[in-house]
Design a protein around this nucleic acid. Structure first.
Length: 712
DNA sequence: GTAGGGTTAG
């Protein structure tokens, strides 16, 4: 976390600047020409690549009943489209006749180029067959290109057509490589590449990017290195696309030194080369190296800016991300694009910085950036996690098309705001109106919503519904939700029964939910047993120790609390420091418990004292069980409680905002019981709405009541 | 033909 020592993070200053009839089936590939000697295709040499044997292909079983098989016998046609130029000027009657057909063919090609549906494509294909061109690479290349690559295509159809070609050319192979990649079938792509070499078809510069990408995707390190050697052998060491693909492949193999070597050896690097390497360093955690490289980059483009910004966001360096974003806007001619917008929205989401998030959303609208389903999801997630459920719902409702993630995100949004009924309603709408079937994540979010709102019956029903109606087997997360659902509702026996009946060993999350339930319902015996198991399952996570300590503290077993602390010390586990962030007037300030490095700390501490005195007058009693240490002196307990980061943030908010303004606070940990109680009373006494996002959910304190109904 | 963004229990 880069925001240390209760410093103030300036985020202001940028608001004025900008202004199919066949079922999809992937058939396995087979070579129609099978009379070649098997050999290692990777040792294929340049000398024998250009003379493929002219053998007639045996009819393959895939094609016998396919539409492609309806083609007339394969006779050599004078209309081979590669020979079109010979027929430009008709001199004789024969030529005139042929030219008519050629005209027809040219129109056919044009039609293929602008073809929009697979049905249309099939009509063109049958005309090609009538013209006797079903083995012509030029004509069939167009057919295969449409089927393999376009969004309305059909790779299965492309593969059938491909298998009928006696000698597919490099273009056709390259096209099918891309088709396989689009459907995330790297193994099939690699296998076809090997078959291509077997068939002595020479690769060209368009061959390597998809093949290398397939190696990267399939994590085929050795093969990737062999393809690298072939790039050099076939003479493409200066092809930027192939070289960039290589850098990307080595980055995905986490072989940064080799990626760097390719980069350094390139005769001419372009912005993509730089960007790939920068993101590579970032993904491997070498943010400093990435930064150095970024500074050296001659001409930065939005992708390279975004690589750096995204790296900062992912490493929790939000301050740096905002600074770099500002620098980008000042120093370059580039406008906000959807990727940078998404990265910055993610930064705002993580920080809980609603104003900044709104600003980015405004600029997305002003810039005319197309809000695709990914960006829409990012925006909605930002509103949900920054506490503005209203704006999230508005944005969601205004979207013309919604993706699965968008629905899931919105259901999750209702869940974290404790709006179980709304989550259920939205899920029903999704099921009945959206044509998008719910997936694994949908049910994780839906069951979470039920758990957080105490909807036990609904939770039970949807847990069955998921299997019975949608054929989704419950995973660890779903069991976690159900244990949480039963546990929170006090149905510990049912929770235990589910854990015992699970088809897999419960993970630390499931056990943690059970331990949490024991704490809530004061089941010390079971809590102690489960709490200890959880610690052994996750011994480096301080939160596990704190939970058991809290269970002991609830029962006033201070000696056991102290023993847990000793255990943590002996094992070198440090308690993760809790912090609270609050946004006031475009600035995000961070507070840690007892921290005094804020410039206004004296004033803030005085305000905490005043604030607590006020709520004492309406019944506040400090809750000692929120102190995990073995402190017995009342004064000491209060000291430890009073300066929790959340109280400091609230006091700061009361100081810096106008009467009636909503305070929005983001915490990294869960709200403790004492702060929860104090926040309710503060909201009543000072007549303020206080919205707190903790690590699990939102608490909206208003008129002395919390939106979670104390069910959290 | 190569690079960058989203939703997931406790």
């Amino acid at each position: 976390m880069s925001l240390v020592n209760s410093t103030t993070l300036l985020l202001v200053g940028f608001s004025n600047y900008y202004d199919e009839d066949d079922t999809m089936k992937i058939v396995s590939l087979h070579l129609c020409s099978t009379n070649r000697k098997p050999r290692n295709p990777l040792s294929c040499s340049l000398e024998n690549q250009s003379t493929p044997p002219a053998t007639a292909p045996p009819v393959c079983h895939h094609c016998a009943t396919s539409p492609v098989a309806a083609a007339p016998p394969e006779t050599p046609s004078p209309l081979s489209t590669a020979a079109l130029s010979r027929f430009q000027v008709p001199n004789s009657r024969q030529d005139a006749l042929e030219s008519k057909e050629i005209f027809h063919l040219l129109k056919l090609h044009q039609g293929l180029e602008s073809c929009s549906t697979i049905e249309k494509l099939k009509q063109y294909h049958s005309q090609i067959i009538k013209l006797g061109l079903s083995c012509d690479n030029d004509a069939m290349g167009r057919v295969i290109k449409f089927c393999a690559i376009s969004t309305n295509g059909d790779l299965g159809y492309a593969l059938k057509a491909f298998s009928r070609l006696p000698q597919p050319d490099t273009f056709i192979y390259n096209t099918v490589f891309r088709g396989y990649l689009q459907l995330q079938l790297p193994k099939e792509c690699i296998s076809l590449y090997l078959q291509m070499l077997h068939a002595s078809v020479a690769p060209n510069k368009f061959t390597f990017p998809p093949v290398i990408k397939a190696c990267a995707f399939d994590n085929a390190v050795e093969l990737g290195q062999q393809v690298h050697a072939q790039i050099l052998k076939f003479g493409y060491r200066s092809d930027g696309f192939s070289q960039n693909s290589l850098i990307h492949m080595y980055v995905s193999f986490k072989r940064l030194e080799e990626a760097r070597r390719v980069f350094d050896m390139m005769p001419q690097r372009d912005d993509v080369s730089w960007t790939i390497l920068i993101s590579g360093y970032c993904q491997s955690g070498f943010v400093d190296d990435a930064c150095k490289l970024f500074d050296l980059m001659p001409e930065k483009n939005p992708a390279s800016w975004n690589a750096m910004i995204a790296a900062y966001v992912q490493s929790d360096s939000f301050h740096e991300a905002f600074l770099l974003f500002d620098k980008m806007r000042r120093s370059s001619r580039f406008k906000l694009d959807k990727f940078v917008a998404a990265s910055m929205l993610s930064a705002c989401t993580r920080l809980g910085a609603l104003k900044q998030g709104e600003w980015i959303h405004d600029n997305v609208k002003k810039s005319g950036i197309e809000v695709d389903s990914k960006l829409a999801t990012t925006i909605i997630d930002m509103y949900c996690k920054c506490g503005s459920l209203e704006m999230a719902v508005k944005t969601f409702n205004e979207l013309p098309t919604k993706g699965i993630s968008t629905w899931n995100c919105m259901i999750g949004g209702f869940a974290m705001h404790g709006k179980g009924e709304e989550a259920v309603k939205l899920f029903e709408k999704m099921e009945n109106e959206s044509m998008i079937p719910p997936d694994y994540v949908t049910f994780v979010n839906l069951l979470t919503a039920c758990a957080h709102s105490g909807l036990v019956q609904e939770g039970r029903r949807y847990f069955r519904h998921m299997v019975e109606v949608h054929n989704i087997s419950p995973g660890m997360e779903h069991y976690g939700c159900m244990v949480d659902l039963f546990g929170r509702a006090g149905l510990l026996n049912e929770a235990m029964k589910l854990v015992n009946e699970m088809p897999m060993d419960p993970d630390v999350g499931v056990m943690g939910a059970l331990a949490g339930a024991c704490k809530i319902h004061g089941n010390i015996e079971l809590g102690e047993k489960i709490g200890k198991k959880v610690i052994e399952l996750d011994p480096h996570n301080s939160g596990r120790y704190v939970l058991l300590a809290n269970i002991y503290a609830t029962a006033n077993k201070w000696e056991d609390v102290a023993n847990i602390r000793k255990l943590m010390n002996n094992r070198g586990v440090k308690k993760s420091r809790g912090f609270s962030l609050i946004e006031t007037d475009g600035t995000v300030s961070e507070f840690i418990a007892g921290g005094r490095s804020h410039l206004d700390s004296e004033e803030i501490y005085a305000k905490v004292k005043e604030m607590l005195a006020c709520i004492r007058s309406i019944g506040y009693v400090p809750k000692a069980e929120s102190v995990v240490h073995d402190i017995t002196e009342e004064e000491e307990i209060e000291k430890a409680l009073f300066y929790h980061s959340e109280k400091l943030a609230i006091a700061f908010g009361l100081l810096k905002t106008k009467a009636g303004e909503t305070l929005r606070i983001t915490k990294n940990l869960r709200v403790c019981k004492d702060c929860h109680e104090a926040s309710k009373l503060i909201s009543k006494f000072f007549d303020r709405e206080i919205i707190v996002r903790d690590r699990n959910r939102f608490h909206c304190f208003k008129h002395g009541v919390c939106s979670c109904n104390d069910y959290w």
